[in-house]
Design a protein around this nucleic acid. Sequence first.
DNA 1: CTGAAAGCGCTAACAA
DNA 2: TTGTTAGCGCTTTCAG
Lengths: 333, 333
Amino acid sequence: MARAAGVSRATVSRVINGIRNVDLAIQEKVKQAIALTGYVPNQAARSLVTRRTGTIALIVSGAGGSQESPFPGHVFADPFFGRVAGGVVGFLRPLGIYPILMFADTPETRDQVIAYLRQGNVDGAILVSISTEDTLPKLLADASLPAVLFARPARPIPISYVDVGHRAGGKLAADHLVARGCRRLATISGPLDVPASQDRLAGFQEAMAVHGHPYIPCAEGNFTLPSGEVAMERLLAEHPDIDGVFAANDLMAQGALLVLRQHGRSVPGDVAMVGFDDSSAALACRPPLTTVRHPVEDMAAEMGRLLLTHIEHPDHPVTSRIFEPTLVIRESA
Amino acid sequence: MARAAGVSRATVSRVINGIRNVDLAIQEKVKQAIALTGYVPNQAARSLVTRRTGTIALIVSGAGGSQESPFPGHVFADPFFGRVAGGVVGFLRPLGIYPILMFADTPETRDQVIAYLRQGNVDGAILVSISTEDTLPKLLADASLPAVLFARPARPIPISYVDVGHRAGGKLAADHLVARGCRRLATISGPLDVPASQDRLAGFQEAMAVHGHPYIPCAEGNFTLPSGEVAMERLLAEHPDIDGVFAANDLMAQGALLVLRQHGRSVPGDVAMVGFDDSSAALACRPPLTTVRHPVEDMAAEMGRLLLTHIEHPDHPVTSRIFEPTLVIRESA
DNA sequence: CTGAAAGCGCTAACAA
DNA sequence: TTGTTAGCGCTTTCAG
């Protein structure tokens, strides 16, 4: 700005950055000049010297051996991603920092992302990895860029992460279903190669075992609505007398509800249904879905917090933070 | 990088930026040195001189007189936003440019956004305005920052925008329903203060008028599933003999379908249903929803393209681009 | 076709 | 407490 505030640029810099040791009168004068001229510091110049951008990356990374659709619409359209983005933005915004949205689904785009990060465009990264085979977490670790993951990586990697107690969630569902009086339970699991699915299933099975149900029929889905439909269809064919189901996410539960209705089974009268996530899909179900709440927004905020401390303190040790799931009781069970 | 490539930094710069007039042998030498040292140019330094950041903002702006929820989850979770983000990222990514995700819902956050943009953090902005009362478009225009809107602003503002032919979409739905043999039509509109809702309704009504149906019962919703339920409930109460419905978006159609089933009406047997958007909700419906496709991804890509030309050519005239909707026929009509 | 030198706007030592 | 002085790493005239 016009150093016409009558002082040196150093002083202006000091008041803008809130460094004390500036005479109050001068501070006032500078502030007025700023307001008057509408001066805004140039971020590029600032970053050049501070080596901080005040920006972080929010990366969604899929598997993608080769190429996928040009429009990653269905990824961002996933209510789950929306909640993550909302949580991150909600936490970061008051701090005046905003995330850069990145998407990597192929080896090339992964390299592109890494290259971008190495340009010093961001101070750190928050990574939501969709696939077990994703190599980006490792690439990030190798680049020793401050980063935080959503969910425990399939293979151990020295990066901090945030996760929910999947086993505890499975147990919550089991206990509720049993307490409700269900006797012939079944479950629709997520894809069994992802840790979260395994853990939800294990938690459910273990809890059922202690309730005296050592064997629980299980159909594997892939977290999509149609997969929930076919899983329910199969379960019903093999065990027509089912009276309670735990689906590993709300979308599959929604699909299951659809076929239950088709078969004339009332919910929760004939069969009770418990989902997982407490996503918007849970509310779109009829009846509204009883579900295990996955506190995604809070977790996303925590990712932001963790990332910031990693950025501030480069030597901060790798950390993980596990959130407790809770049961949200609505009408389906 | 180690200017140990044996040349001056100026030459390295030229090679990196693909400026001709560089001896091929030297080019090779430099490239090797780059590969060897893993050199990456510092973006901040670059931006400082070029006055370009290679970054744009993707802003979601709501109304918000005062404050809203700390987590803008439901906004980003909206499948509509997901499609926009996907389209923008899909177009920009091959160009190596990524969007910064911003969210403004209160006057304060709007100012914060503007301040951020004025810091020179981005070259331009793509704005998805959720509310009619949003003042951000005007603020952007006043700041004369390159920007493109999604959808025509309620009040005329000198900013380029991209939109779909809402009227044409309404007509598509009307023609299809009539061709199918429906005689007693009704419609569920969106909030009538937003131009898109008005236009979809008008297009539908006009087309119905030419088909000899001058009056069409209409219930107003707000684009949410529950609002679709109550609207359908009302329509059914007042006009029990309805045999065809046009809902102004898929979510409301989904809600309407739910109450239709509750009332024992078969779809499309007893009543046919046409939605609008062709969002993921259309596929989640049972039966799958016949709907007017809103080519959101393509529109988002076009926003990127338009923004880029505005950035390249600051004097490029304000432009609008209207996309044609198409009918996607599935099972509900 | 290539190198030297200036300078983008800011922060941070260092002096005063 | 404030001003002066160096750069931060790059692009870009301007010479050569």
